[in-house]
């Protein structure tokens, strides 16, 4: 009774011990940028729709389509109920920040119902995430086209307990491979390629830098995936912890005649679990291989999926993918903990 209870409790706690957070693009994760604009009180509410229409014609503010032109007045008991954006400070050429409404509007503009302008700060770009929206809307009301998945992911709640249990299992496999690599004198990094549609491990690898300086765990994993498809360039027979399984071992899939049911193409649709954030070479190798998603445990100093670069969100590249960090972060950190600490100290000197 006692051991069983302990085990159940242990595994439940394990999946609760980590949270998978998305690694978002710079645009999605940066601070809200503000830009100065002139606003003016609408003292006569009946003039509102005319003023908005005519101001839109005069100062269209094309770059600020996400901003609402009118806002309800913030302070209670304010003499005017509404405020309207007149123009950007940069639109009013060479104006001081203390201006009169007359200097902002042409003489034929009917300024009935409009009060004297004042400077406000409005968000310069449309918000891409809920945190950005919440901060931005404190400055001026704005529209937000919410990506619900990003909102849930940012809260660390994207994956169900069942999904987390699977992710936990795959990362544990990567950790085991990493330890095997470390025992062989290599860096303690492990990787696992998974076909999420079949819930199946395609390849398991660890760092093999002993024989080849570029055989980082991810590069080995990519080559093992190629092996599983009848390609590949290297033999890792001397590393028993590096292995692959062919996705077409099902006899119904691999008929010699007729249409093949499904031909896997490089890493398309596969997930990669790796104990630490890939370097530039490995991250770009994953772009070339059309990886589906990447999950890593801990960040690395020169990492290219979040730390130094975000290759998975790079606009100029032809393939993008989702990246999540933090899986079994504690265990993954412990793998490299001592080395990293030593290297950091070394770099400081």
């Amino acid at each position: 009774m006692e051991p069983q209870r302990k085990r159940r409790k242990g595994s439940a706690c394990d999946t609760d011990s980590w949270v998978a957070y998305p690694v978002l693009s710079d645009e999605q994760s940066q601070d809200v940028e503000l830009i100065e604009a002139f606003a003016a009180p609408i003292v006569d509410k009946k003039e509102t729709s005319r003023l908005v229409r005519e101001l839109n014609g005069l100062y269209p503010m094309i770059t600020l389509q996400h901003i609402k032109r009118v806002r309800a007045c913030k302070e209670e008991g304010s003499p005017h109920p509404l405020e309207v954006l007149v123009c950007l400070v940069s639109d009013a050429h060479g104006q001081e920040k203390m201006v009169s409404i007359d200097s902002l509007l042409p003489s034929d503009f009917r300024r009935d119902g409009l009060g004297e302008p004042f400077v406000v700060k409005v968000p310069a770009r449309p918000p891409l995430t809920r945190p950005q929206f919440e901060i931005a809307s404190k400055h001026w009301p704005l529209a937000f086209h919410e990506d619900k998945q990003v909102t849930v992911a940012l809260k660390g709640e994207l994956f169900s307990p069942l999904q987390k249990a699977k992710m936990h299992m795959y990362m544990t496999t990567a950790l085991t491979a990493a330890k095997a690599g470390r025992e062989g004198g290599m860096e303690a990094v492990g990787a696992v390629a998974v076909d999420p549609a079949m819930d199946r491990i395609i390849a398991v690898s660890h760092d093999c830098r002993g024989k080849h300086p570029l055989h980082h765990a991810v590069m080995v994993c990519i080559d093992l995936v190629a092996r599983s498809q009848g390609g590949g360039c290297y033999s890792y027979d001397q590393y028993p912890a590096c292995h692959f399984s062919s996705p077409s071992s099902n006899p119904f899939e691999n008929t010699s005649e007729g249409e093949p049911a499904f031909q896997p193409y490089i890493c398309t649709g596969y997930d990669l679990y790796v104990t630490r954030e890939p370097c530039v070479m490995c991250a770009m190798a994953l772009v070339h291989s059309r990886i589906g998603r990447v999950f890593y445990g801990t960040t690395s100093a020169d990492g290219a999926l979040g730390t130094k670069y975000k290759l998975h969100t790079q606009k100029d590249l032809n393939h993008r993918f989702e990246v999540y960090r933090g899986l079994l972060s504690k265990q993954c950190e412990d793998l490299n903990g001592l080395e990293d600490h030593f290297e950091k100290e070394h770099l400081k000197e």
Partner: peptide, 22 residues
Amino acid sequence: NQVNQSKNATRHAEMVAVDQLL
């Protein structure tokens, strides 16, 4: 380049040449 031949998208000319160097 040996990408098609090896089914490994990382088999660029440079990587192939590096293997020869090794």
